[in-house]
Structures are given as structure tokens and as C-alpha cells.
Design a binder for these strands. Structure first.
Lengths: 141, 141
DNA sequence: ATCATTGCAAACACTTTGCATACGC
DNA sequence: GCGTATGCAAAGTGTTTGCAATGAT
């Protein structure tokens, strides 16, 4: 899609990021694969079509995109950092069985306050853990 | 405190964990240092009084204590896994400046529901990020 | 020509594994 | 005595760093 690539170029430029080929590809991958990939997933996928593509570039780029506010990094306990191009506030649900990381609506009634105990809060991350729909159904059968 | 050690022995036995010297010390350290230490912090601190104490034991023990439900592991993006002996549900606040990890009351109105989007939720982790009270005050002066 | 970006190789930091020794019931 | 726990050394992962080659303006 020409469309998406143009959007990405815009987005990067708006955030003062020079839109190089590699950066566009990484951003595009994240926007098209909303399963919160790890750096390694991105590398492995893109390497196929870009033979000289390097892991260093993935790490460099992810770091830059985070700093400039184009991406969010997600904390999960068990494994590596995961990345999310969806900047609309939302939570995550991690299935402890299959490892899938789902998006979650921010639960109704969640406070929007920006100060708690005197601390200034800029960002919330909500991580729920449990058994996902699919694994749960399998367990019953 | 004899008192605390006895409590720990009880706690471990209740969870089917053989209360060895090392396990008791690790648990004790976590209960007495509620700053969510990393495995390395625990190792470094306890090594002083236990010359043969090994990191492997720390990792083994933390893993066991988690599995048996005596400890919780916390996800934070920037650094290693941190551990918490406080099993009462609560959130955390991480200061992006000084790195301190504070406890947070679970905000009023946070949903207690155990099913979302068909997923069975067993556990919530809430991680707020921002500028803590102390760093904020420093910035003003 | 200059400065930023890329990518290889090597270093690093955290965690896990294999296995021999020591401990507890 | 037997099974578990411990601890050393080595291997494994994920990430970062140093630096030379390349690319863009």
C-alpha cells in the first residue's frame, strides 16, 4: 500500500525522524502486525526482504522511535520487551499458556488522574494475566 | 528478629517449600527491603554474610517461590525483573528520573472483574510512570 | 564535505543449564 | 542412604557498544 507508507513518512517527519527505508519498514511492520512483536521478530521478518538488514538497526530504530514518541515499549515479566505502535491508551492481556498478548480496553472507571501520592503520572500500563479465550476453551474439551 | 524468621518458616511450609537457610534469608530480605529488589541486589546483599552463597540459588529460589505463590514478579520495561513479597493487590509507580519503584494503592474504582473479552483474568499489574514527589520538588528549586 | 545512519563484530548483562558436592530427613 | 538443594563453571539470550563503510544533504 502506497497509502500506508506515505502516512508513515508523514508521521516520522512530524516527529523529527528522518524517514529512511529501514525506519519505514520497521514502523510499517509494527502497524501491520499488531501482536506486539519483539525486536527479534521484527528483525527476522524484515531480514528476508532486506539481506543486509541488521539487528543493530532494529534496536537503534526502536530506541529512537520510542524517544520521539512514535512507539511505546511494553513490559512483560517473562520475556523480552515488546513494541506497540498503538499510542491510544489501552491495556494488555497476556495469556500465560500460549503467550499471546492481546489488547484490552482500558477498563471503565479507571482513573484519569495525573497525580497520585504526590507523584506526577505521565503514563499508565495495565497488564492483566490469565488464560485466554482460546486456551480456556481447549482446556474444557 | 526470631519472630520474623519463624513466620517465614511457617509461610514456606504452608506452601510446601522446604525452609532451607538460603530460602529463609532470601524471603527475609524481600520482606525487610520493600523496594522491589532485583535478583542481583538480593545476591549482593546476602553474599556478605554467606560466603558460599551463589547466584544460581537466588534464581532457583525466586523461581520456586513464584511458582508456589509466595512471591510476585514485576515487569518494568527498562531493567530487570523485580520481586515483591507483598501479595496484597497493589500497583506500582516508577520514577523515570531516579528509577525508584513505589507501591501504589489500587486506584478506587478499578474493576474486580475476572473475565474480560472472554479471557479469564487471574492477575492485574498496574505500572504508572512519571516523576516522583522528590524529583519533582528538585526540579522546581 | 559534513553529518547521520547503517551494519558487522565484539562486548555486556542477565538468566539458565549441567553436573558434582553437600545437606536434610 | 536417598532425594533434594546448593553452587560452581559454562552456555545461552537479549541488548549495547565501537567503529568503519555508506548514504543523504
Amino acid at each position: 500500500m502506497e497509502r500506508l507508507e506515505n502516512q508513515i513518512v508523514q508521521l516520522l517527519q512530524n516527529k523529527d525522524i528522518r524517514p529512511t527505508q529501514q525506519r519505514i519498514e520497521i514502523m510499517k511492520y509494527l502497524m501491520e502486525h499488531r501482536v506486539h512483536p519483539t525486536a527479534d521478530m521484527i528483525y527476522t521478518a524484515l531480514k528476508k526482504n532486506m539481506p543486509t538488514f541488521s539487528k543493530t538497526t532494529v534496536y537503534n530504530t526502536l530506541k529512537l522511535l520510542q524517544e520521539k514518541g512514535a512507539l511505546a515499549a511494553l513490559a512483560t515479566v517473562e520475556d523480552q520487551v515488546r513494541y506497540d505502535s498503538n499510542l491510544v491508551p489501552h491495556g494488555h492481556f497476556k495469556c500465560t499458556q500460549c503467550g499471546t498478548l492481546y489488547d484490552l480496553e482500558i477498563p471503565e472507571g479507571f482513573p484519569k488522574q495525573t497525580t497520585i501520592d504526590g507523584h506526577r503520572v505521565f503514563e499508565y500500563q495495565i497488564l492483566a494475566k490469565g488464560l485466554c479465550r482460546h486456551c480456556h476453551m481447549q482446556e474444557l474439551s
